[in-house]
């Protein structure tokens, strides 16, 4: 028995070349199996580890990414379906080191505690804010109804969305927030403000 030839139990699909624009970067040298799941491709082949796997069953929303600007659960999406499309993950939200307003307000309003659900929420909300820069509570709730968060009880997430909308509507650019923590001279910056 033990010498019998190796027959895989899960049929592996045929490999074919796959390309996509992920966070504005072109990936065109990937070879994936025809049954590969987008979540696996993003995490294991592309290396976008910001996309989280919470359940693999479409029940938690942690794996949400934007496909051509529309939020989709990557654990329920065949990678092959997204060939040639624009994919945005949480890593692609910031503009250089300038955070997206929702990233900044998540930090300031407590929208993120353990942070595991955060990537999913952020991409969903960024898509919402893209369409509607001043959503009301109802619209926010409808947008994030597919995302579970076990830590925050959602309230501070909703607060964050309102705060982000305010920034967007005031047309301010968000300050370089990633750098505030590491900027050697933030003090000078502040005194000249």
């Amino acid at each position: 028995m033990s010498n019998s030839p190796h027959v895989p139990m899960i049929p592996t699909g045929q490999k074919s070349s796959w390309d996509a624009v992920i966070n504005n970067r072109i990936f065109d040298d990937l070879n994936i199996e025809s049954n590969a799941i987008l979540l696996d491709v993003l995490r294991d082949s592309v290396g976008m580890l910001g996309v989280k796997r919470g359940c693999d069953l479409g029940t938690c929303g942690c794996c949400t990414v934007l496909i051509d600007g529309v939020p989709k659960l990557s654990c329920l999406t065949l990678a092959a379906e997204t060939k040639g499309k624009q994919i945005t993950t949480v890593e692609g939200l910031a503009n250089g080191s300038h955070l997206h307003p929702i990233q900044k307000t998540f930090t300031e309003c407590g929208g993120s505690q353990c942070g595991f659900c955060t990537p999913g929420f952020l991409v969903v909300i960024s898509a919402l804010l893209n369409e509607n820069s001043n959503p009301n509570d109802r619209e926010i709730k409808d947008a994030i109804e597919g995302n579970l968060c076990r830590c925050t009880g959602y309230q501070q997430i909703v607060d964050s969305v309102h705060a982000a909308a305010e920034i967007l509507n005031s047309n301010q650019s968000v300050k370089d927030n990633t750098c505030a923590q590491v900027d050697p001279h933030p003090g000078i910056d502040r005194t000249t403000e």
């Binding site: 910001g50 949480v90 890593e91 955070l99 998540f106 993120s112 942070g115």
Partner: peptide, 8 residues
């Protein structure tokens, strides 16, 4: 928090 919101 910045690590969390940037996916890092």
């Amino acid at each position: 928090s910045n690590w969390k919101v940037t996916g890092q």
